[in-house]
């Protein structure tokens, strides 16, 4: 990497930071309980819009893993999301009516909250339909992982997004508030992921899975990226550049081993492909606030009318993290 490249990356990072600080004016605090954050608390940052139905289980799930405080940005919800969030004692909420697209799909807002409140903390940045699974997550809380990462001098933790889907058509089983979405979407593709290295930021670019197989078989290049780096020991100089796919400085993207070994890594189970997708896709296409002019949601909206079934004979039923590790979808690395 040449000096010029390094300098260019530095500028890019600064630009992201300046941008996020400028965008802070768009965030209006609804309930700011960040004073109660203790120095070694584990935090979670999340941007939501009309996701109230998902939130009770989401909060539950991450509280059980040991997240101490939640920082939410509510982007103009109309379904009572804000009211629900402000009633939770371990949640701080900001609201904004500004454009999701113009805030680089929420990343500027997240970057601001991270910079302001997460400096020196281990912090998860996830979407409300992403559920973090890491090695030993059934017996060790997330703090065991972060303590270990800290002890081995690791600052960031890599995952892959796994699209989970139900056995039949996705609108067959309605999702109830508070329910574990993986009671409905129990299935996933175990071995059709395509990986290349992104030379710009040094992260891996992973595509594939159920969405690529069903929605993007004619345009595989447009299939959504599945590589995510959601868990970082944050520093105010850091910045996410595109969703949580990559960060700056680039060293944080080196969550994979190139010399043959396996680094410890996890997955984000993706509960997108349930009955709430149809309404969401229609709404987001109309708003046009998502990546590539909501191109991804356009594809969903177009094809959902055909009522696709993701399940096939080769689908794997989700059991636990050990199954994922045997399938090669995550790794314990040298954490034993």
């Amino acid at each position: 990497m040449s000096l010029l490249d390094s300098y260019r990356m530095r500028l890019r990072r600064k630009r992201r930071l300046i941008r996020c600080v400028r965008k802070r004016r768009e965030l209006k605090p609804l309930r700011n309980a960040t004073k109660s954050i203790r120095p070694d608390d584990i935090l979670l940052v999340c941007v939501v819009r009309n996701e109230k139905i998902r939130l009770p289980y989401f909060l539950d799930y991450y509280r059980r893993l040991g997240v101490d405080h939640f920082l939410f940005v509510d982007n103009d919800s109309t379904d009572g999301t804000a009211e629900f969030l402000t009633s939770q004692s371990d949640v701080s909420t900001w609201s904004t009516t500004a454009s999701y697209r113009k805030s680089t799909y929420g990343i500027d807002w997240s970057n601001y909250l991270l910079r302001k409140y997460a400096h020196g903390h281990w912090v998860l940045t996830v979407d409300p339909d992403e559920f973090f699974v890491y090695p030993f997550c059934d017996s060790r809380p997330i703090r065991a992982l972060t303590d270990w990462l800290q002890g081995t001098g690791v600052r960031s933790f890599g995952t892959m997004l796994i699209d989970m889907y139900p056995k039949g058509r996705i609108e067959d089983v309605p999702y109830r508030e508070g329910q574990d979405p993986f009671e409905i979407a129990q299935w996933f593709d175990s071995g059709n992921y395509m990986i290349t290295r992104n030379p710009t930021y040094g992260n891996l670019w992973i595509q594939g899975g159920a969405r690529a197989r069903v929605f993007f078989q004619d345009t595989p290049k447009k299939a959504p990226a599945l590589n995510k780096i959601p868990l970082v020991k944050w520093n105010r100089r850091y910045a996410y550049v595109s969703s949580t796919h990559s960060l700056l400085p680039r060293g944080l993207n080196q969550v994979y081993e190139e010399a043959g070994g396996e680094k410890t890594c996890g997955v984000l189970l993706h509960a997108k492909l349930i009955d709430t997708l149809g309404a969401k896709a229609k709404e987001e296409v109309a708003r046009g606030e998502h990546y590539r002019g909501s191109g991804e949601y356009q594809a969903y909206a177009d094809q959902l009318d055909a009522q696709p079934v993701f399940w096939n004979d080769w689908s794997e039923k989700y059991l636990n993290w050990r199954q994922l590790e045997i399938l090669g979808l995550m790794s314990k690395g040298n954490w034993a």
Binding site: Y193, I195, E257, G260, G261, E262, S331
Partner: peptide, 21 residues
Amino acid sequence: KAVDRRTKGREGLYMQGRFPR
């Protein structure tokens, strides 16, 4: 085993934690 996994890994596996050159 853990050390072996970290230094050698499972041959032929490409994933988010292993992408050998």
